[in-house]
Amino acid sequence: MTTTASTLTDRYVAEALRGVPARQRTDIEAELRTSIEDAIEDRLGAGADAPTAEHDVLAELGAPRRLGARYSERPTYLIGPELYLDYTRVLSVLLSTVVPIWFLFSGVVNFVTGSSALDTLGGALYGALETAMSLAFFTTLVFAVIERTRRSKRSAVWNPASLPEVLDKRNYFTELIGGVVFTLLIAGALVGAQTIAGVEAADGSRMGPIATGLWQSGAFYIALFYAFVSISFHVFSYYTGWSVSNAIATVILDVLFAVPVVWLAASGRLLNADYFDAIEWPAGVGVVNSIVIAIVLLFAAMDSIDGIVRATKNRRTR
């Protein structure tokens, strides 16, 4: 082994200071080094040889990471005991519902579009694995953010009146999971209608109920992304409690979704008129447009009002 310039003490101090906030690092390093040198000197005075003295002193100080964590007083965990049970529950519910649905759905789509059985199975397995990993990642991310943002509240006096209603909480949880599954089903149905269930256009390509140009522009993925942001936000609000700022954010999110969709529908850019002609829809595309606008407005309004009601209710009980 080649000798390096850094001593055992150098290596120990560097490792211990890794988790320590930068502004305290210099001072802690100076003190820690002095303390180590003092201890080594003591042992040398008692007759130990230098390498043994250094080794023993560091061994007695114990794992440097643990020492560093004690200095920094920062949590060395991602999700703490207060959220852990909820975290595992949300994760297991999501994984046990969304992943099998996605597996079946992508399997059916692949098979119908003419893949071989083996390719279908492989593709579906891959898709399910990918979905599971994204779910795990985003769930963990949301909970880690909650863990760090609610830290400041912990010192406040806990009031039993702030306990959530048992029934309400459970209902809301089910609602939340229902919302995720519902969103994925809608997204799946749309993709299906647009691809395998689409009808042939004049030029021989497939077209679906959504305007082809809009579909190809990737707007659908933006909508899907929006849905996940919205769901994550609802999970976040569920744990941090509905505050006025959360209610305002909900309204903003709803407006961000409703306005572009209503505008697209009203200006005739959302739906594919040719598609509705081709499938001989009796009432024409205008009626569908109106229905879409009505549903979007209704959902956005309901969600916004729901958020505001939760926020004011929370205020009253505090």
């Binding site: 303390s35 003092d38 201890a39 003591d42 100080l61 020492l67 004690r70 200095y71």
Partner: peptide, 21 residues
């Protein structure tokens, strides 16, 4: 730090350095 550690030990308060500092 180190002098306090040894003084505590001598006085009968066993404490680890990684706790004291």
């Amino acid at each position: 730090g180190y002098a306090l550690l040894t003084a505590l030990e001598k006085a009968g308060f066993g404490v680890d350095a990684n706790t004291l500092y």
